[in-house]
Nucleic acid binder design. Structure first.
Lengths: 342, 342
DNA sequence: CTGAAAGCGCTTACAG
DNA sequence: CTGAAAGCGCTTACAG
């Protein structure tokens, strides 16, 4: 076993000072070519690599980004991480990932942990519980200490920082309107409880689309699901008790469960009931019928979030309080769970 | 903006030495109760938290684990990360994630990066390219420097270290044998190219099952897929040109593509062709028909890998060269793409 | 051209 | 009981 070599050891071997070694390796013109080359050769031979922790301490920069997300076993979030990773890597940054498991406490603990020197900035999406409690002190605190934060997808207006989102309201509006334009009138909505920001916005888009097309809101057609694992009985009731011609589901899982339930109840999809989902993940593509859905490009969101964060990290004026909210465009992906929508 | 407070600042404010502050905060009995309490109160007030980078440098321990995987947008790997994260978090470790994108170079770069002080040990799964080139010098090097490595899923015998795997050969054998036991005779195999270790092992299990049941190997029934994106034409040929009664696919994507292709060619699944997959992810569950498959519990693999790594990190005898290969059990998940298998 | 010193933020053996 | 010193591995302004 040969431990990693340090400047000190090189200095000793070569009988020069640590400073000389350091400068040589950084190609300083202060040092004579002679010793410079000698040191470099030696360093190369022993495969010297600077200790990044020491550099971090010295520079007060870690070149790593902290990511805090509710879950990783969730295609959309995995996609965003991938997007972040790629631009981060390109620019020489590493990525620390922490999962909040939708828990406020874990989100707080993880943030405080990472804020103690481990990272230069955060990219995060709020946990459900945090959104419910509306307690964002941990985030404000971090920002207050001068550490930039970029929020994506599940964001809040209560914190001033850069954000990357899609226009959930508009995308939902367009999806529902395209159902209406194709003759649908009894449109069910499967959505989340209201405290989930994106769920709420998508619900609002649904409502707006109906109203602006002269269709009154019927609360019987709307179900708000708290616990995704037990949603199928609620969905079954929704379908059985109402003579729906279509359903808008605010995520993939709700959409695929709606399809499975409808099929089980002997409805044909899309002939009897058309179904539109939200978020274009694996399921939408491989379900039968495959699911017409609103694509939400996680890679792009991740790319953008990383760009924004790194830009802020590397910008000169530290105290730029001009926060940007970047809206990533969405579009409708036509598949088999609806008739072809005009 | 109020920057994070340091020992130095506290010392200055309270007009004591840095050592006294440090000791007080660590509840050292060396310090009088008086000053101890005073310091602690002050620290609490200013929300002092030790700088983890400084601690890392001092202790030569970062309390963070490096994870290197080929891709994150892949349910199985996301699952493993989740499993690692949870036990890591419990034991006070953080997790840095790097993606190799199936590239040897990126794998090497990422490992070298992290090995320079950022982490205490690695958990990794080999990139395809690395498996193809059979070049593992970067891994041996890291191990040689005294940094423990745990490999999972895509492992190699050429490196001595702890490993977490499933018995790919046996699981495949059992899957294929269960097809045979249910009267199947012309069993197609959709597998990867041989350099992918798990693909090769699963192929071997298939071969063994056939031979030990007196069925000769017919190479026409075996396709080895290099590029997953263009596999459907190969699969179409396989199904069209051979009178298969069943197919064993070594992963979910091959399985679902086989189902889609079979359906398109007007074969009924499972009546005309039964299909068994490998890896129980989202797709297997939501495909129609849902896919009978061999479950490979990523969470458990992640849990175990993290446990093994942390145990090694925290064990007394550094130089324990007793490496363990932990085999996680698999089982067959019966779904709709096969008849009920006895 | 080279090296000693100070410093990043911490801990701890040692002196007083 | 308190503090100065050394050290983790590095960089850099300064002195010689």
């Amino acid at each position: 076993m040969k431990r990693k070599v340090t400047l000190k050891q090189i200095a000793k071997e070569l009988d020069v000072s640590i400073s000389t070694v350091s400068k040589s390796l950084r190609d300083s013109s202060e040092i004579s070519e002679d010793t410079r080359l000698k040191v470099q050769a030696f360093a190369k031979l022993y495969n010297y690599k600077p200790n990044l922790i020491a550099l971090s301490l010295k520079n007060k920069k870690t070149k790593t980004i902290g990511i805090i997300i509710p879950e990783i076993v969730h295609h959309f979030f995995a996609t965003v991480i991938s997007g972040i990773e790629h631009v981060a890597n390109e620019k020489g940054y590493n990525v620390i990932v922490c999962l909040s498991d939708e828990s406020f406490d874990k989100e707080v603990i993880n943030m405080e942990m990472l804020a103690n020197g481990s990272i230069d900035g955060f990219i995060m999406s709020l946990s459900k519980e945090t959104q419910q409690r509306k307690d964002f002190h941990h985030i404000s605190e971090v920002i207050n200490q001068g550490m930039p934060v970029v929020m994506f997808d599940r964001v809040t207006n209560d914190v001033l920082c850069d954000k990357v989102i899609i226009d959930d309201n508009l995308a939902a509006y367009q999806a529902v309107e395209s159902l209406i334009n194709n003759g649908m009138k009894k449109i069910g909505l499967i959505t989340t409880v209201d405290y989930v920001s994106v769920g709420k916005l998508r619900t609002e888009g649904y409502v707006k689309a109906l109203l602006s097309n002269g269709i009154p809101i019927n609360n019987n057609l709307i179900i708000k699901i708290e616990d995704i694992d037990n949603c199928s009985s609620q969905i079954e009731e929704l379908i059985t008790n109402n003579d729906l011609d279509s359903i808008f589901a605010v995520n993939e899982l709700f959409a695929v469960t709606a399809i499975k339930t409808a099929k089980r109840l002997k409805f044909n999809v899309p002939e009897d009931i058309a179904i539109i989902g939200f978020t274009d993940g694996i399921i939408s593509n491989y379900s039968s019928p495959s699911i017409t859905t609103i694509s939400q490009n996680g890679i792009k969101m991740g790319n953008k979030a990383a760009q924004m964060l790194i830009e802020r990290l590397e910008s000169e004026d530290e105290e730029n309080e001009q926060y940007i909210t970047e809206v990533i465009e969405t579009h409708l992906v036509q598949r088999e769970s609806t008739p072809i929508l005009k």
